[in-house]
Every structure is written in C-alpha cells, then in structure tokens.
Write a protein that binds this DNA or RNA. Structure first.
Length: 291
DNA sequence: ATGCCTGTCACCGACAGA
C-alpha cells in the first residue's frame, strides 16, 4: 500500500496540482489537510476520475481535512470523541468586554468550560476511516499562534483529547496510522534554525510532550527521507525565499502503530511538489507499506 | 535551478498561517 499525507493549503486552489500529483505518484490512500472547503464543496468528481473515493470534513474557509482511497473507505469518523473546539471561555478570556464584574445567573459554570463539553463546536481537524484494513487518520492540529494565546492552550487540549480517543482505537489492536500536519517540530533538528524559534510555538516542551504522549500509546514516528539536505522538512514559509534556502520545518508527521511501522518499506518527502508555480507551502510525505 | 507569500471572504482590506 502506498500512503501519503499532504497539507494542500486549499484543495480548490491546488486542484490542478493535486490531480497531476495523484496521477503521477498514484498513492492508494491520501490524507489531506487545510482543504479550506465545506464537505459539499470538495472536488469529488475530479479525484473520482482517478479512482478515489472521498471522505471530506470541512467548515468552509478555515481548516478542513479529507481522506482519498481506492482500497476502500469505511467506518468514517468526522472528528473524534471528546474533541474540543476553540472556546476562549475555557481559558477565562471573555469573548467580549464584560459589562460588569457581576457574576449573575448567566455566567458559565466552570464544568461547562472544559474542553469538549463547552459550547464551541469542534473545528474540522480530524477525519478517520478504515482503508483496506488499515485505520487511517488525517489530522490538522491547531496552530497555537503564540505560547501566551488561548489558541496555544486549545492546541494542547486538542492533542490530549486525541490521545484519549486514539487510546480507545488502539485497544482494538487493529493496524493504525495517524498522519497529518501536527504543527509541532519533534526535535530541534526539525527546524532550520532552533535559535529562531526560541519562545515560539511548535517547539515547546509541552507540544513535544504531546507527541511523546502519542508515542507512549505505541505509535512510532515514521521519519521520511529528505530528498535534499540532511533534514526531512515538510514545510517552508512562502516568504523570503525560505524554500530556496531550504529553511523549513518538519511538522507533517506519520505516526504509525508498531505493527504498521514494522512494515514501512520506504518513506520520503516529495520536495518536487513544493516547486514551481502555485505550490502549497507544505510538501507531501509518501510511505510504502508491505501490508 | 526551486526564486523571494498565499487563500479566502468580503469587498478594494482583514485575517490566518507557523
């Protein structure tokens, strides 16, 4: 089985490149992130012509994940149990300036502010399905913005909830892989210059501990081969010629259950897909499995 | 060479990305 994951930064804007890439690389299962379209707006017909079934999960303008498969697409899960939404109240930050410090009957009880139980619905950041006997998740972790932001605490809460959900799935013993844009660089070697990231998100101990929590469940980081240079970066900022200087980050990850990781024949970052006209700012990872 | 930011929604800029 050939498995791939790619943050396409809008499936509509990337459609010509996506179609060409699918036709050339011919993966069996593809995890997409940042599709930036509602599920009904996904170009199902265009990828369908290449033999892919589609399961999409989207809000519209932001986020959005999808799975493409031509080896079966069953037991689709849009989101996961306990998945939190972004809720500023969960951090004690009021959505609007409070009129007064009065705490009346309308105030939200603390127990209703916990992640996953508050009013904010989950964003479209996770979709799972069973493809040819393999349980596959396509993930788009929250960015976090800055370490003092409610979005950073949301990011950590989202990872904690995903760990819980995954623990239940792994208990069934079925082969599983969780691919996507984790928005965390696992080690200092996974950013082009660690000094540039001091005090930033994506490299903090808490974010790296979130990844460690997934590895504690038995998942392994399937590190792809870099097609240029020593670091298998998967993201390069559009600005300031970062790609051309190979100043990137490894934030797209393939986390595989041990039984799947043992069957990885090869894995690589397809840097070619980051070149040329109108690319995504992320490159795909392609993994060949002997299942 | 791969080439110096982009997509979306709403409107002619704002916001988000990491």
């Amino acid at each position: 089985m050939r498995l791939a994951t790619w943050n396409v930064n809008s499936v509509k804007a990337r459609l010509p490149r996506l179609v060409d890439w699918l036709a050339g690389v011919r993966p069996d299962v593809v995890c997409l992130q940042e599709t930036k379209c509602a599920a009904g707006g996904f170009p199902v017909e265009q990828v369908g012509e290449l033999g892919y079934a589609v399961a999409a999960h989207g809000d519209g303008r932001w986020n959005g994940v999808a799975l493409l498969s031509r080896v079966g697409l069953d037991e689709v899960s849009r989101g996961f149990p306990g998945e939190p939404g972004f809720d500023a109240l969960a951090d004690g930050v009021p959505p609007e300036s409070p009129e007064s410090p009065e705490t009346g009957a309308g105030s939200t009880p603390p127990e209703a502010r916990a992640g996953g139980t508050g009013a904010a619905p989950p964003e479209a950041r996770a979709i799972g399905a069973t493809c040819g006997g393999l349980r596959v998740w396509s993930l788009y972790a929250p960015n976090g913005r800055t370490v003092d932001s409610p979005h950073y605490r949301y990011k950590l809460a989202w990872f904690a909830a995903f760990r819980e959900a995954l623990e239940s799935e792994l208990a069934t013993g079925s082969p599983l892989v969780a691919c996507g844009d984790y928005n965390v660089a696992p080690t200092d070697a996974d950013v082009w210059d660690p000094a540039q990231f001091a005090g930033s998100t994506h490299v903090t101990p808490a974010e790296r501990q979130a990844l460690a929590g997934l590895r504690e469940l038995g998942l392994r980081d399937v590190v792809p081969t870099a097609m240029k240079g020593p670091h298998p970066f998967t993201y390069w900022d559009y600005r300031a010629g970062m790609f051309h200087q190979n100043k990137g980050m490894r934030i797209d990850l393939v986390y595989a259950a041990a039984g799947v990781a043992d069957r990885v024949r090869s894995a690589y970052v397809d840097r070619e897909a980051r070149k040329g006209k109108a690319p995504s700012d992320h490159a795909p990872i392609v993994v060949d499995l002997d299942l």
